[in-house]
Computed example of a mutant assay.
Amino acid sequence: MHSDNDNQQGDNALTELWQAQPTNTIDVSEVKKSFNSERVKQRLYILIDIILLLPPLYLLYLAWGEMTFAARALCLFMVVTAVPLVMYQLWLRRVAAFTKDSQTLDHLQQFTHQIKNNIRIAFITKHSAWPAFIVLPLFVVERHFAGALSPEKWDKLIIALPIASIIVIVWGVWAHKRQQRFEAQLAVLQSMADKRGH
C-alpha cells in the first residue's frame, strides 16, 4: 500500500495550484513536476506488480503435481482471472510510466489521462478484494475433503481466516478511498484544463 500522506500532499498541492491560477494562466511547470512525480510512481508500481505476481505463479508450478483436481481447478481459476487483470493494470500505468518528455508534450492532458487510469486501477483493486470471501472458504472445503486438515491445522485456520477477512476488508476500504481521492484529483485537473482552454 502506498503512502496516504504523499497522496494527500499531492492532492493539496494540485488544489492550491488550481485555486491560485489567474483565469487565463496555468503554471505548466508545476503540472509538469506533478506529472514527472507520477511517472516515477507508476514505474515503481509496475515493478511491484510484476514482483508480486511471479512468486505465486512459481509456487503454483512447483506444487501442481501434488494438488487434487479441485485444488488445480481453483488455482487455475485464480490465475485466469488475476493475470489478465494485472496485465490490464500494467497497460493502464503506461501513460505516465512510458510517455517520453518533449517540448510539445501537453503535461496537463497526459497527467489527466493517467489519473483517469488510476481511477480504473483503484476500482479493479477494490473489486479484487471481495472474491477472497468466496475463494478462501472454497480452499478450506477442498483441503477438508482432501483429508489435508488435521485438528492442529483447523486450530490455525480458526485464527487465520478472521485475520485474512480483516485484511481483505481493509484492502477494499483502502482501494475505495484511493478511488475517491483520484476522482477528486481528476476534478481539479479538469478544472485546470477548462481554465487553460479559456
Rank of each mutant, 00 (worst) to 15 (best):
S3G: 06
Q8S: 10
Q9S: 00
G10N: 09
D11Q: 10
A13C: 03
L14G: 03
T15L: 15
W18V: 06
Q19D: 03
T25R: 14
I26H: 12
I26D: 12
D27R: 08
D27Q: 08
V28P: 02
E30D: 03
V31T: 10
F35M: 15
N36V: 09
R39K: 14
K41N: 14
K41Y: 12
K41P: 07
Q42E: 11
L44V: 12
D49Q: 12
L53W: 06
L54F: 11
L54M: 15
L57T: 06
L57E: 04
Y61I: 01
L62C: 07
L62N: 10
A63N: 06
W64D: 02
W64S: 06
W64P: 00
T68K: 03
F69S: 10
C75W: 06
L76V: 08
L76P: 01
M78E: 05
V79L: 13
T81C: 13
L85W: 01
V86L: 02
M87V: 14
Y88E: 13
Y88D: 08
L90R: 05
R94L: 01
V95I: 14
A97R: 15
F98R: 13
K100M: 11
D101W: 00
S102N: 10
H107V: 00
H107T: 01
H113T: 04
I115Y: 02
N118V: 02
I119S: 06
I119C: 12
R120G: 08
A122L: 10
T125I: 04
H127K: 05
H127Q: 02
S128R: 06
A129L: 03
W130L: 11
W130Q: 10
W130T: 14
V135S: 08
V135T: 09
F139V: 09
V140W: 05
R143N: 09
A146S: 15
L149D: 04
S150V: 00
S150Q: 01
I159E: 05
I159V: 15
A160H: 00
L161V: 13
L161H: 02
A164F: 07
I166M: 15
I166C: 14
V168A: 14
G172Q: 05
W174I: 04
R178H: 11
E183P: 04
A187F: 07
A187M: 11
V188Q: 07
S191F: 00
M192N: 02
D194A: 15
D194M: 11
